[in-house]
Every structure is written in structure tokens, then in C-alpha cells.
């Protein structure tokens, strides 16, 4: 079977690709593939993506290979005489059954991953995300069993905003962060700070129209729908800055409401959060335990 070799090649390429991209920054010029990200969900999505990709490439090679072979071998100009058959039960059975098996091979891991992602319980903290035209609002609801009342708005950084005006004359290439990475349209004034190695639950909603909160490195997006709460979770493995954008058309500045997550070790996060709490709520409100506050626990993704 010639296919074995092809699959081997595919697997090799997959592995190579995964290694090559793991260390690379998230967005690079001429980028070809998805970034594996920094959470279990993003790795799962990436693996599923590669699995499906290679299955499709495999099918494609066989189907198009057969077709191109036919186009060369059975051309009239080479004197091909047409056959008259138009049935072949064995072949028809094979090409019904094999795709079914391949679909199962994709659906199976997809189901497992999905069930895992739907499980939002046992989170260690909760952040409420609200989409506005055209900025994001963040509320830290609790950490551990302590309730917080930290709220802020996060919007497009000022430099991108000036550059993106119609015919501003400014060069998008000049909008860079300290490391020299281009941050045009993917930087904000105040990032969402999150702890690493912590299961963080997000409750996501919209204020005016539907938005969608998406940081590719976390591996999912969740629509922010007015009047409805969606909940999801993440658990970031590495400290770093992760950038994303609103992913649902929300009006004229849909392209200009980025998301930045700054993941820091839990200790640093605790310090940061307490500072914010103190600054925003000077008389230090009675910190009712969350259990009493009654953040309901839910069996699955709403």
C-alpha cells in the first residue's frame, strides 16, 4: 500500500510543524497555519485541526490522483476507447464505508474535547466579560471564595487608534510594543490580567449588539449576546501576552475592539487584584464568600 508512506510523511510533517510553531510568536508574516496556543483547549483545537487537515489532504491526494490519472490515461487524443460500464458495487461500497470511518475518526476526538470544554465547574475564579460598541468591559467577580468588585473598560490603544483613521498618513508598521512586535489594532489601553495555572471561568455577555470574545491562544471564542450569558473557561499554562479581536460583526468599529490577555503567575495576580480592589473600592467592602453570594454552579456550558 502506497498510502502508508503518505501517512507517515503526513505524521512527520505534522510533528515538525507543531514543533516549529510552538516557539514562534503568534502572528507572523506569511504565516500558514494555526498557532497551537497556550491552553489545553487550544492544543486540542490545534490537534483536531491537524488531524482533519491531514485526513482531507489524504483523501484529496487519492481522489485528485485518480482523476488526473484518468485525464492522462484515458484521453481521446491518445485513442482511448470508452468503456460502457456504469456500476461497480464493490467500489461504491468502499467509498461509502471508508469516508464513514474517517468521519468517525474525526468526530470521536472532537466529541471528547467538546465534552471537556463544556465542563465549566470547579473553576477557581470568575470574570465577567461584556462587549460594548466598541470596547470590552471586565468585572472580576471572585477569586477563590472571595468576592471582588474590580471593573474596568479595555479599548483600542491610542496609537493604533490614531493610525487607523481614514488616510491618517501614519504607518501601521510603526505601531510596535517594547519587544518590537507589531501591535497595530491588537493592543489595548488596559489588558485583562489573568493568573496562570488557574481554571478561570468567564461569563460573557453583550451590552448593545452581539460581539464575540476571541483570543486564539486560548483556543475558543464565545459570543457576547445582549441579555444572555455564555460561560466558558480557560487555564493558561504560560505567562505571556495573548492577543485577540472581536469576532462578530458589531458595527462600524468591529475591527477596532481588540482583546489583550496578560497572563501572570498566581502570586503576582493576587497582588495585582488586591491592589485594584483597594483602589476601586476604598472602604473595603465586606467580602462575602462567593458561596453565599451564590454564583450558581452549573453542570454545563450555557
Amino acid at each position: 500500500m502506497r498510502n502508508i508512506g503518505k501517512w507517515g510523511l503526513g505524521a512527520g510533517l505534522t510533528a515538525g510543524w507543531a514543533v516549529a510553531f510552538a516557539a514562534a510568536p503568534e502572528r507572523v508574516p506569511w504565516q500558514l497555519n494555526m498557532h497551537p496556543g497556550v491552553t489545553q483547549s487550544s492544543h486540542d483545537a490545534y490537534d483536531l485541526h491537524m488531524l482533519a487537515l491531514w485526513i482531507c489532504v489524504g483523501i484529496g491526494l487519492i481522489v485528485f490522483g485518480a482523476m488526473f490519472y484518468a485525464m492522462f490515461a484515458f484521453r481521446k487524443s491518445k485513442g482511448a476507447v470508452p468503456a460502457t460500464w456504469s456500476h461497480n458495487t464493490i467500489a461504491e461500497t468502499i467509498w461509502t464505508v471508508v469516508p464513514i470511518l474517517l468521519l468517525v475518526a474525526m468526530a470521536w476526538p472532537a466529541t471528547k474535547v467538546l465534552i471537556n470544554e463544556a465542563y465549566t465547574n470547579e473553576s477557581q475564579m470568575t470574570v465577567k466579560i461584556t462587549g460594548y460598541q466598541w470596547k470590552w468591559g471586565y468585572d472580576y467577580v471572585n477569586w477563590g471564595d472571595k468576592a471582588y468588585h474590580v471593573h474596568f473598560i479595555s479599548r483600542l490603544d491610542e496609537k493604533s487608534d490614531r493610525t487607523r483613521q481614514l488616510r491618517s498618513g501614519l504607518n501601521p508598521g510603526d505601531v510596535k510594543d517594547a519587544q518590537g512586535e507589531n501591535t497595530y489594532l491588537i493592543d489595548v489601553d488596559k489588558p485583562l490580567v489573568l493568573p496562570t495555572n488557574t481554571k478561570v471561568r468567564f461569563v460573557v455577555t453583550g451590552d448593545d449588539v452581539i460581539h464575540s470574545w476571541w483570543v486564539p491562544a486560548l483556543g475558543w471564542k464565545s459570543d457576547a449576546i445582549p441579555g444572555i450569558i455564555n460561560d466558558t473557561w480557560t487555564n493558561i499554562s504560560e505567562p505571556g501576552i495573548y492577543r485577540g479581536q472581536c469576532a462578530e460583526l458589531c458595527g462600524q468599529d468591529h475591527g477596532f475592539m481588540p482583546i489583550v490577555v496578560k497572563a501572570v503567575p498566581p502570586e503576582d495576580f493576587k497582588k495585582w487584584l488586591d491592589e485594584q480592589e483597594a483602589a476601586q473600592n476604598p472602604p473595603a467592602p465586606a467580602a462575602a464568600p462567593v458561596a453565599q453570594q451564590g454564583v450558581p454552579s452549573m453542570p454545563s456550558n450555557g
Binding site: 465577567k128 461569563v203 455577555t205 441579555g227 444572555i228 450569558i229 460561560d231 451564590g294 454564583v295 450558581p296 452549573m298 454545563s300 456550558n301 450555557g302
Partner: peptide, 17 residues
């Protein structure tokens, strides 16, 4: 029912309604 907190709507009801 969801807005009212049933089934998958517990959080929706809790936070918004």
C-alpha cells in the same frame, strides 16, 4: 426558561435577570 434560570440559563438569570 433560560432567561428565567432553568436548564442552561442559571447564569443568565443570575447575572442579568
Amino acid at each position: 426558561p433560560w432567561i428565567g434560570g432553568e436548564g442552561d440559563g442559571a447564569l443568565t438569570n443570575f447575572f442579568l435577570w
